[in-house]
C-alpha cells in the first residue's frame, strides 16, 4: 500500500534543494492568503499548476481529488448560503456568495496543491535534512522523519489486527456509519499497545547505534544550493513582490 505522495521522477523540481521548495511553498501560501479576488487566484492556480508540471507530479492530483472537490463544494455551499450579498438568486443564495465561495475554495485548494507538489517531489529524508539546514535541531527533525515512517507500520498493524478479529467473527461491515465507527474503537487498544511495545525495541536499537552521542552529525545525503535554486527563488520572490505591489497599489 503506497500511503505517501512522493513520486520518483527525473525532473528539475526533484533536483532542487528542499529549502528552495519550502520557500516556494511558503511564498505560494502567502500570495494565496493575500487575495480573495477570483481572477487573481486563478492566475496563482495557473502558476502553481505550471510549477507542478515542471516536476511531472500532477498525476498525484488524482489521489487528493476527493479532498479538493469536497473543499470546493463545501466552500461554495457554505458561502453561497451565508455570504451577505445583494444579488439574490434563490432563497438566501446570492451571486456574490457563490463567487466568494468559489474564490475561497480555490484559495484553499491552491495551497493544498502547493503542499502536494512539495511532498510529491521531496523525499522525507530531504525534508528532514532541509529542516536541519534551516536551523531546526536534529532530534525534532529525526522524530519527524521517524514518525512519518511509522504511519504505514501502524496502519499495517491495524489492518492485521482487524483481519484477525474478523476471522474470529467480528462484523465490521454492517450498520450505519456511527455503528461501524463504534465497532472500530475496541480495535484501537491492541493497535496502540502493539505499537507502544515496538517503541521499546526502537529505543534500544537507537541506543545501540549511539544515537545522541555527538551533536555534530554527518549525513549520507548532502544538499546544497545550485544555480537553478537561485533562479527558482528569484522568480518566486519576483512574483511575491509583484503581488505585494498590486495588493497595496490597487487595494485588491
Amino acid at each position: 500500500m503506497e500511503m505517501f505522495l512522493y513520486m520518483d521522477k527525473d525532473s528539475i523540481l526533484h533536483k532542487l534543494d528542499p529549502r528552495t521548495k519550502i520557500f516556494i511553498m511558503l511564498i505560494s501560501f502567502a500570495i494565496a492568503l493575500m487575495f480573495s479576488s477570483l481572477s487573481l487566484l486563478l492566475i496563482l492556480s495557473f502558476l502553481v499548476i505550471l510549477y507542478g508540471a515542471l516536476g511531472k507530479v500532477l498525476s498525484n492530483l488524482k489521489r487528493i481529488r476527493v479532498i479538493l472537490i469536497m473543499i470546493a463544494i463545501m466552500s461554495v455551499i457554505l458561502w453561497a448560503l451565508t455570504y451577505p450579498g445583494t444579488t439574490r438568486l434563490w432563497g438566501p443564495v446570492t451571486k456574490e456568495g457563490i463567487i466568494y465561495g468559489i474564490a475561497i475554495g480555490i484559495k484553499f485548494d491552491v495551497m493544498i496543491i502547493a503542499g502536494m507538489i512539495f511532498l510529491s517531489s521531496t523525499k522525507i529524508e530531504e525534508i528532514s535534512l532541509g529542516l536541519v539546514k534551516l536551523g531546526i535541531p536534529y532530534r525534532p527533525a529525526f522524530a519527524f522523519s521517524t514518525a512519518v515512517r511509522l504511519v504505514p507500520m501502524i496502519v499495517s498493524t491495524s489492518y492485521i489486527i482487524t483481519q484477525a478479529q474478523k476471522s474470529r467473527g467480528l462484523d465490521l461491515d454492517t450498520g450505519n456509519i456511527l455503528q461501524r465507527i463504534k465497532k472500530y474503537i475496541p480495535l484501537l487498544i491492541p493497535v496502540l499497545i502493539s505499537v507502544i511495545r515496538q517503541a521499546n525495541i526502537l529505543a534500544m536499537a537507537l541506543e545501540s547505534k549511539g544515537f545522541g552521542y555527538s551533536d555534530k552529525r554527518t549525513s549520507y545525503l548532502e544538499i546544497k544550493f545550485e544555480v537553478r535554486d537561485y533562479a527558482f527563488l528569484a522568480v518566486a520572490l519576483l512574483i511575491l513582490i509583484v503581488a505585494v505591489y498590486f495588493k497595496f497599489k490597487y487595494r485588491l
Binding site: M3, R139, P140, F142, A143, F144, T146, A147, V148, R149, L150, V151, M153, I154, V155, S158, L188, L192, V195, I196, A199, L202, A203, L206, F211, G212
Partner: peptide, 16 residues
C-alpha cells in the same frame, strides 16, 4: 525521541 515519533505516528495514523 522515540516517544515523540511514536506519539506522532499514532496520532497521524488515526487522523488520516
Amino acid at each position: 525521541v522515540v516517544l515523540v515519533a511514536l506519539s506522532a505516528g499514532i496520532y497521524a495514523a488515526v487522523l488520516i
